[in-house]
């Protein structure tokens, strides 16, 4: 093996990487927030919603969970214009991530809702709260607390999966790496550095999500101990 590693290109190309990081972070934040929201809505529909809505949500969840993200992305970006639905690369990437996380989030959050003791629903009802009010004020936060570790892992998985959006030319971190390697012919180094950046992003994201958990769930362990 007669190969000398060369990272000199970093001096010239770091702004490209930085821009890519920015897009990846933006995709993750938007995808994370909207995706979890969609997941909550779908989990509600599947666990507690009206009967006619459940099969629709189930079909959506199963469809997404059993097809690759890349194909979902291609379908949205290349396929949907056939129906007159057009969007730019970033919009398509964002939409795909929200839809993807929404489906996985739905299943995870639903498990949290189903682990809720029946008495919580009854206490809400006996105080005169409607079903929606009970869900929103009483059930949701402890349910999220129960599954927060699983949901956090899924958000990290979706962030890492976002590397695929480079394939519809959304200019994320992977796109930056592709761009750099095409200019410098230093493919291995470019992807190596990019991989390290992803690793750092994953670690940071996990910390961030832990922090979010600490703020929205004031009582750690309370949900598990309550009867």
């Amino acid at each position: 093996m007669h190969y000398t590693f060369d990272f000199g290109w970093l001096l010239e190309y770091w702004p490209v990487l930085l821009k890519g990081i920015g897009i990846t972070v933006e995709l993750t934040l938007v995808g994370g927030v909207l995706g979890v929201s969609l997941g909550v809505a779908c989990a509600w529909a599947r666990a507690l919603g009206p009967g006619w809505l459940r099969p629709i949500v189930t079909a959506y969840v199963e469809m997404i969970r059993n097809t690759p993200f890349l194909i979902q992305l291609f379908f949205i970006f290349f396929g949907l214009p056939a129906l007159g639905i057009r969007m730019n690369e970033l919009e398509a990437a964002n939409l795909a991530m929200v839809i993807n996380l929404g489906a996985y989030g739905c299943e995870i959050i639903r498990a949290g809702i189903q682990a809720t003791p029946k008495g919580q629903f009854e206490a809400g009802a006996s105080l005169g709260m409607s079903r929606i009010q009970t869900f929103w004020h009483v059930i949701l936060i402890p349910a999220l607390q129960r599954i927060w570790p699983a949901l956090s892992s899924q958000i990290v998985i979706v962030m890492l999966g976002s590397a695929a959006v480079s394939q519809i030319a959304a200019e994320d971190l992977t796109f930056a790496a592709n761009f750099i390697q095409s200019r410098t012919f230093r493919a291995f180094e470019a992807y190596f550095v990019t991989t390290l950046i992803y690793l750092a992003l994953a670690v940071l994201l996990r910390q961030l999500l832990r922090g979010v958990g600490w703020t929205i769930f004031p009582r750690r362990g309370a949900a598990s101990r309550a009867r």
């Binding site: 990290v156 890492l160 999966g161 976002s162 590397a163 695929a164 480079s166 992977t174 790496a177 992807y191 990019t194 991989t195 992803y198 690793l199 994953a202 670690v203």
Partner: peptide
């Protein structure tokens, strides 16, 4: 588990 499969 902390890096994209695509990068791998």
């Amino acid at each position: 588990q902390g890096t994209p499969l695509l990068m791998q």
